[in-house]
Design a protein around this nucleic acid. Structure first.
Lengths: 166, 166
DNA sequence: TTTTTAGTTCTGCAAATAAAGAACTAAAAA
DNA sequence: TTTTTAGTTCTTTATTTGCAGAACTAAAAA
């Protein structure tokens, strides 16, 4: 496969990732920028490289980078004697993305709990249903950290196997 | 507590739920309409009642109802000899809301998997990190139905206890 | 048959969002 | 000290979204 064929493939995949992100309500450039970072080879890219690939303005890229940093999806490193930032996918801390969603879920759960307290006792079946919804949120909030722990343990295990096989 | 005090409390709580929903990217009216359905007493409300409470136009309410139906957050029942729709929170099927989010997660996981295949072998550590992210998504997609099952069992158990105590 | 009801869809406007390009800033290089 | 670099912030413009009100539709009631 030629280099230009591969570039086309990368561009297509960036667009596809962009579309999936759009469906989750990401701002338009954010999904494509995220896609670029997922496909980036090598994984860290400078501001200018991102601007060039996306064919977007510096301001749009600057704002979108900030957005993705807030989402904890990307971060950057710097090197001594080099003023450039090297952005990359927060590949080592991706679980933070999920944890942030749990923060929202917790906020929602709290407001639902207050709502339930405000309700009268006149519709006990509905109240019971609402209580169940709150409990579903609670279970998810409780279980997600366990799932993440499970995942982290698997990673460590696999890492050790990789080291042994070297 | 007087009826008007309670109305004020309800209105305040509807706004709070609206704000939490806004933060998740809901359209402006959607969060408040959802909030109203959460606090609605009795739980089913007609189109006109919703319009009156929200102080919004019929068109805005119509579109927002459709949006929340798509999200599987509300539904409606009708009664013979009554043309009105009685909307209410989909209190019995709330887990569908989470299941729909898993559909998105699955789509994302698939695109990440394709992305990983496109990548070269030149950055094995990053590839490993990306593989781990994909696995995290897989675990969540796998575990969420189990969490929902666990929750449903708890509900059934509690229901039986309630029946016994009657 | 005409009128009322219960919404939906269309039209136009207002507000919010997104992007480009210019102006700016702070650090490093010349 | 001036210039370049690496971005950020501000300004303007274009696009999108959200909403109100009017026009419309389909069923039921009169």
């Amino acid at each position: 496969m030629s280099t230009s064929d591969n570039l086309k493939l990368i561009q297509q995949q960036v667009e596809k990732i962009g579309i999936v992100c759009d469906k989750d309500g990401f701002p338009p450039l954010a999904g494509r920028l995220l896609g670029f970072m997922i496909l980036a080879e090598p994984p860290h890219k400078t501001f200018d490289e991102i601007v060039a690939f996306l064919n977007a303005s510096k301001s749009a890229v600057s704002n979108t980078l900030k957005f993705l940093e807030n989402q904890k999806m990307i971060d950057y490193t710097t090197f001594p004697g080099d003023r450039k930032r090297y952005f990359r996918l927060s590949v080592e801390n991706w679980s933070n993305v999920l944890i942030d969603k749990m923060v929202w879920l917790k906020a929602m759960q709290e407001q639902l709990t207050i709502a339930l307290k405000i309700r009268t006792e006149e519709n006990p079946e509905f109240n019971e249903g609402l209580r169940n919804i709150i409990e579903l949120y609670e279970i998810v909030i409780e279980e997600m950290p366990l799932i993440i722990e499970k995942w982290k343990k698997r990673i460590i295990k696999r890492k050790q196997i990789n080291i042994e096989n070297e």
